[in-house]
Each structure stands twice: as C-alpha cells, then as structure tokens.
C-alpha cells in the first residue's frame, strides 16, 4: 500500500520471550515492523499471537528480550476482541471519555462520521448491534491519532457480511490515517486480504513470513491464504 521507497522500521523486537511460571508461551521472537506496514499475526489458537500483541501494547511485561522503537515511541491504541465499550456512557462519551474539550468534541464528530455512526452518537452501547459496537471501538481507537494500531481479533465475533464490511473500513481508515497496523487473527483469508505481510507464529516463535498478494489480482488472495494455512499446519516446521 505505502510506496515509501526507503522503509523505516517503527518497531524492532529482539529475542523476545514470555513465560507464565514454568510455561513458555513465546521464545526467540525476532521481528521488525516497518512504518506504514500492515502486518498480520496468525497461528493456532493458544499459540502466543495474542500474547505477542499484548506485549507490544504494553499490557504485559516480557520475560526476556527487547522491544525498541528506532524513531520515537509511537502512540499505540488497541482494539480488543470484545468491544470493551463502557455500558454507562453514550457512543460519543465512549470515544471522548466524557472529557470536555472542544478539539476532542470536533474530532469525535469527525470520527463518528468516518465510521458512519453520527446518528447514533447519543445511544448507549446496549442499543447497538455487534458490528456497530466494533465501529465505535474503532472510532475510539482513532481518537488519539495513534501511529500504531493493534487489532486483537476484533472481528472474530461478527457475521461474514459485517465482517467483510469492517475489513474494508479498517483498511480504508488505516490508509487515510497512515497507520502502522498489526492484526491478530485466526482467519487466514482475512490475513491474506488485509495484510502486506503475514507472520506465522508457531511453537512460540515467528516461523514464516508471507508477503501479501497483489491487490489487483483477485485470485492471488486465495493462493496466499492457502500458503499461510500450509505454513500453520506444516508438521515439519521450518526455519525461524
């Protein structure tokens, strides 16, 4: 998507490891995420991809290794699997956190319009559908103009049609806001469709990387998806 000739790294991960007591979840993870890149993390459930995302988000502390930002530390926002909207706040309050700031109010208006929910600004989350709730969560994540957007399977609970619409919305928004994005998903189709690069997490480390398909070739998505799937279930394992 971005065609910056000299890609600059936003984030570098070296020899990262994470264990809960004796249980090793991640080990020897080495990764570099380029600015403006859309990266998908895929793998078996329980394979550590969500943990990796949470470590990058700073929600948990890594056991070993380093995570460095060569440039400046970015503003990071996470979209969770569940929408995590506050039920006692209206849609607008949920994205401004009831802070009374003119600039914030203006941006909230813009973001609600961007996700197509300006009419719903004064409704409570309980009155929204699942897809609408995730759109509010997206608007909320965009409020602080983040440089890095982390998506932790945010579309997992949606039906196929809504899911497809959300994928397109996220891709559009990421492009407009020039976001670096990391998406955790268990859906290889989704990864192939959305990501510039898909990283397969297996046995607690990053095993394969697949380049995203040519966007102009509709058949290529399927091919890449097949390749990713093959990587995930490959019994031989492969080079890190």
């Amino acid at each position: 998507m971005t065609t910056t000739t000299a890609a600059q790294p936003l984030l570098t991960i070296n020899d990262l490891g994470k264990q809960y007591g004796p249980k090793v979840v991640l080990r020897d993870v080495n990764l570099t995420i380029q600015q403006g890149e859309f990266v998908a993390l895929v793998g078996m459930s329980g394979g550590g991809k969500s943990t990796l995302l949470r470590l990058i988000a700073g929600l948990e502390k890594m056991s070993t290794g380093t995570l460095t930002y060569p440039d400046v530390a970015p503003v990071i926002r996470v979209m969770f699997q569940d929408d995590r909207l506050l039920p006692w706040m209206t849609v607008r309050q949920n994205i401004t956190f009831k802070r009374n700031d003119a600039a914030l109010q203006a941006r909230s208006q813009k973001m609600l319009a961007r996700v197509g929910l300006e009419k719903w600004a004064d409704q409570y989350p309980a009155q929204l559908s699942g897809g609408q709730k995730q759109r509010v969560a997206l608007a909320r994540a965009l409020m602080a103009k983040p440089q890095l957007l982390l998506l932790d399977e945010p579309l997992g609970a949606l039906d196929a049609l809504t899911r497809r619409k959300m994928q397109d919305l996220i891709l559009q928004v990421c492009q407009e806001e020039q976001l670096t994005t990391i998406l955790v998903t268990h859906d290889v189709e989704e990864a192939a469709r959305m990501a510039d690069r898909t990283i397969v997490i297996k046995d607690g480390t990053n095993r394969y990387a697949e380049k995203g398909p040519d966007k102009d070739d509709p058949a290529a998505v399927g091919v890449v998806a097949d390749q990713i799937l093959h990587d995930i279930i490959d019994p031989e394992g492969g080079p890190a």
């Binding site: 988000a57 700073g58 929600l59 990071i76 926002r77 996470v78 969770f80 569940d82 995590r84 506050l86 956190f97 909320r140 602080a144």
Partner: peptide
C-alpha cells in the same frame, strides 16, 4: 477488569 485494562491502555488517569 477488561474495562479497567482498556482505560489504562487508552491513557486514562487513575482518577478518571
């Protein structure tokens, strides 16, 4: 606790 985690990661102060 998920809501509290969200608040922390979205930069809310302890009081907020």
């Amino acid at each position: 606790p998920n809501l509290v985690e969200m608040g922390t990661s979205y930069g809310l102060s302890k009081w907020e």
